[in-house]
Design a protein around this nucleic acid. Structure first.
Lengths: 304, 304
DNA sequence: GACATCCATAGTCGCAGGCTATAGCCGCAT
DNA sequence: ATGCGGCTATAGCCTGCGACTATGGATGTC
């Protein structure tokens, strides 16, 4: 007589999209699977949740009643996971910092030093997280503080401080026709093949394809889970990728050339944490990260 | 990355019992299944929830953190189910009254009449619920008001009013040696075979075996889901059952004789509802039920 | 009228989640 | 000391869930 929280998540997705097809693609499952699961949920509750015909899907009264409750349960479950990892890290006196791409910029040494004086006995752990998790491990509780490129998924769960603003550059295989130019105009990239972040990365994927500024979406020829993977693909001539000017420096390779792209807004690097996570140890780490990385300091609250 | 609410229920059971074996039997599953599920939950959360050795089971810090959260989620899920059935019954303008055994006592007519004047347009639905659900359908939301014999499961979820107090009698097959006596002393039933309610009925099962007053538990030879089933079993000579004096009258059969039992406290019939269910329509029905049934009125709040 | 879109159905496959039987550890009683 | 009882863990088995692909049928659009 009990649900799987996953099924509630499915339900919420359908309720939000009011389309099985769209919801399924958002959830990265096939549409028939989703239909089946929703039907099963309806059987469990002995209630019709959606009025569906061939053209439209609408919430019933029962569905409307379930929706806020389902959201609450999902949120409660995520809170429980965080609570547990808090307890665990508190027991270990450890703060975990997550990142998608190498950070460099002297962060590790700087934060470690600051921690040694302000939080004696505590340890710092750095963990690389796949791009397929756009929250850099914050949502699952694996990570307490993330160094992440904006945009973040824009619900109210996260707070951040922008700590650096860097141009978006493009990485090209050596010998690429565009490598001859000092600066590459965005138009020139229109027909080039690109390596993308995984679909689950959401907005971040679009941003690092430059789709926020292009007239037409980039042509995607492959997906990569990490910076290392994507640069490997660039090196082998599979396609191009965008990256921040700072990362262009950090990830220097013999088989790759990086060039500024004219016509793209810069990228913002931020220190991100869970808005409701108010542990003092965390504040120390956030502050230390910001001090180490800041060249253009500025505080932000969750995006709108 | 999501849980099944069932697994949280399993976790809570183990945390409360601090024993896999006892928790498993409380959950009506095999112990290895439970061990496996808990281990799987631990894998999902990447945390040890219990410190177990061959003699003892104890919550870890992480487990202690999860426990209240898990209870909350389970409770929220149950609330969601109730919410839905409220919406559905409100849409239908229907109140469902659940019962384990025939009620008789003029309830149906009385309540229907009262409803017609106080809640025009509303309908009353009576539904028999199997003994295997000791909450008479209240927990699942199938039922809004229950006419039930005490004791109810003693959490704080339910409120009730006792509406009748009746002696406990015993039902014997005609020709049984004890049928000759006008009153049967409890001692005489010590070695008799008994038909029991299902194990899931909990305390109610014990009560209707008379185990609350016996020096040694009754000998159970069979289980029955409903009164009809159990009296069928008595009629065929399989064993005996206890029943209230009122039900002895309602369920008269040619092949059965009912006799008062000396040495048993009386049984209490109550009108029960979900403590947090404050719909006005419900109050009308509760009140109508109480008025129809009451011979010894008295109000109670949840048991302690 | 052909096509695109969208939900439902059918059939397939792997694993989850239940079961029984049994092993292994420990404490207690004989 | 030895054996028994109580507990959890492991192994092996079976069923059904929850994914997938392919396809069907209804309904607007060009």
């Amino acid at each position: 007589m009990d649900v799987h929280v996953r099924d509630l998540r499915y339900f919420v997705a359908v309720a939000e999209e009011l389309s099985f097809t769209r919801a399924a693609s958002r959830l990265f499952i096939a549409q028939p699977s989703l239909s089946k699961q929703i039907r099963q949920l309806e059987t469990l509750l002995r209630v019709t949740l959606f009025d569906r015909d061939h053209r439209s899907v609408a919430l019933t009264a029962a569905g409307a009643a379930l929706l806020p409750q389902a959201r609450l349960i999902i949120q409660q479950w995520e809170a429980a996971q965080c609570e547990i990892s808090h307890v665990v890290t508190a027991g270990r006196m450890t703060v975990t910092v997550g990142f998608h791409t190498r950070i460099g910029r002297g962060l590790t040494a700087g934060v470690t030093a600051r921690m040694a004086t302000l939080l004696p006995g505590w340890k710092l752990l750095f963990r690389q997280v796949s791009w397929s998790d756009p929250t850099v491990g914050l949502a699952s509780g694996d990570v307490d503080v993330a160094i992440a490129w904006l945009p973040m998924p824009d619900n109210r769960e996260f707070s951040w401080r922008v700590v650096a603003t860097e141009e978006r550059w493009v990485a090209l295989p050596v010998g690429h026709r565009l490598a001859a130019q000092e600066v590459v105009p965005l138009d020139e990239l229109a027909d080039e093949p690109f390596i993308a972040l995984p679909r689950t990365a959401g907005q971040l994927r679009e941003f690092w394809l430059g789709n926020d500024q292009r007239p037409a979406p980039a042509r995607v020829v492959a997906e990569a889970e990490t910076a290392e993977e994507s640069l490997e693909a660039v090196g082998s001539g599979l396609g191009l990728v965008l990256l921040s000017s700072g990362n262009a420096e950090i990830y220097q390779r013999d088989d790759i050339v990086c060039r500024p792209v004219a016509g793209l807004t810069p990228s913002e690097l931020a220190v991100v944490w869970r808005a409701r996570d108010e542990r003092p140890a965390l504040r120390v780490v956030i502050d230390a990260c910001a001090r180490c990385l800041c060249d253009q300091p500025g505080a932000m609250t969750p995006a709108g």
